[in-house]
Amino acid sequence: MALRTVAAVVPQRCAPFEFGLIHEVFGIDRSDEGVPAVDFRVCSAEPDRTVDFGTGLRLRAPHGLDGLLGVDLVALPACDTSRPQPPELLDAIRAAHAAGATVLSVCSGAFLLGEAGLLDGRPCTTHWMHTDELAKRFPLAKVDSGVLYVDDGDLITSAGTAAGIDACLHLVRRELGSAVATKIARRMVVPPQRDGGQRQYIEQPVPQCTGDSLAELLEYLIEHLADEHSVRSLARRAAMSDRTFARRFVAETGMSPAKWIAAQRISRARTLLEDTALSIEQVAGHSGFGTAAGLRHHFTRQVGVAPAEYRRTFSSAMSTAS
């Protein structure tokens, strides 16, 4: 998929933040920083194209539903799930998807996809407060209530608020590479990569857990991804018992230490494959997988393609080696 044209659909009672994050990722011209320019279209089904956010804020969209014609991506922010959407809006979303557009929803924007019939038989998610309702209203959808976002190819759905940023940056990375996603994330001052399988929230709060209590340890791990790490060795470094450390790590990252380290190693390998001419064996060593065989096994399982194939698709290095 190309990512040259993006249509953001703004229904009545659209959530301002979720619309804003879509605009922040796709709608700002960062071509002077090497980010490919995007034709960003704000589209509305209203006759006068004026959208009431329901908070005293109003917006006049430059485009009607004809703005969805021929786009690469249709992005849907959160909206009022109790309001039926205009049939012409659902028709336009369906037509854009049938013509080859990827569709992406943030938070309750997934209900628009459900009304358009695009969730039938597809894995998807939304904000954890709405997952039961989504599953009830659209029983053919395969709703996952515990993840940040779901990438099902031409259908990407995300949970609430910040998870929408994760999903948008994931799509940028998937289509344009990690260098572009990192540049956008740096300007937004957000992490460039969070795995979609992370949990949306923690059910059991951990006493005396602060958001930055493991920050120093996480920085250490990023700098030493090629080293071997165990819960015991990391717990000692953090001056905690094994059990307390494991529990706190999940509370602050949403993942177990092993899964978090594996995700960071995959991220490092992707960057090295895209931006350097290191051999596959060298990439494996620098990213902590040890051998080319180990890298190929884990990378193919997580990313879906072998490292060499990924490099051929996304490499920005002047020359590559395998």
Rank of each mutant, 00 (worst) to 15 (best):
T253K: 10
D152N: 12
L65Y: 00
D72R: 05
W128R: 09
G34Q: 01
S316H: 00
S158D: 03
D275C: 00
S158F: 06
P307M: 06
H97R: 14
Y201H: 13
R270V: 12
Q200I: 13
T81Y: 03
F17G: 02
E88C: 05
V206R: 09
P257S: 07
P36H: 00
A167K: 08
R60W: 07
Y201I: 14
A293T: 12
G290C: 11
D212Q: 12
D120R: 10
S44Y: 00
E18H: 13
A99G: 13
Y220E: 12
F17K: 04
V103E: 03
R232E: 15
L104C: 08
R265M: 11
A263F: 10
G70K: 08
S230A: 08
A246G: 00
S145L: 04
H130K: 10
R122T: 08
D227Y: 12
S241P: 03
L273I: 02
D80S: 01
I202Y: 07
D80W: 00
D39N: 08
T313M: 11
A306P: 09
H286D: 13
G121V: 02
H170D: 05
H229K: 08
R122E: 09
M318W: 07
V35C: 06
A185N: 10
A95H: 13
H127Q: 10
E219M: 11
P192W: 12
A251G: 02
V103T: 02
L218F: 00
Q85M: 10
M129L: 14
T161F: 14
H224L: 10
Y149R: 03
A317V: 03
S316R: 15
V38A: 04
L234W: 08
T157E: 06
L21G: 06
S158C: 03
L65F: 01
S316G: 09
T131L: 01
R312P: 02
L295R: 10
I22V: 14
T244D: 14
G54M: 07
T161Q: 12
R4Q: 15
P139N: 05
I93Q: 03
D242S: 05
V10D: 03
T182V: 06
G34D: 07
S279R: 11
E33H: 10
E175Q: 12
A116E: 05
R199Q: 14
A238E: 02
V180T: 11
G304M: 09
L218I: 11
P207V: 02
T161A: 15
H298G: 00
E133A: 14
S256M: 08
G54H: 01
Q282D: 15
G304E: 09
W260A: 09
C124E: 07
V35M: 03
L76K: 01
R174Q: 09
Y220Q: 05
S82T: 14
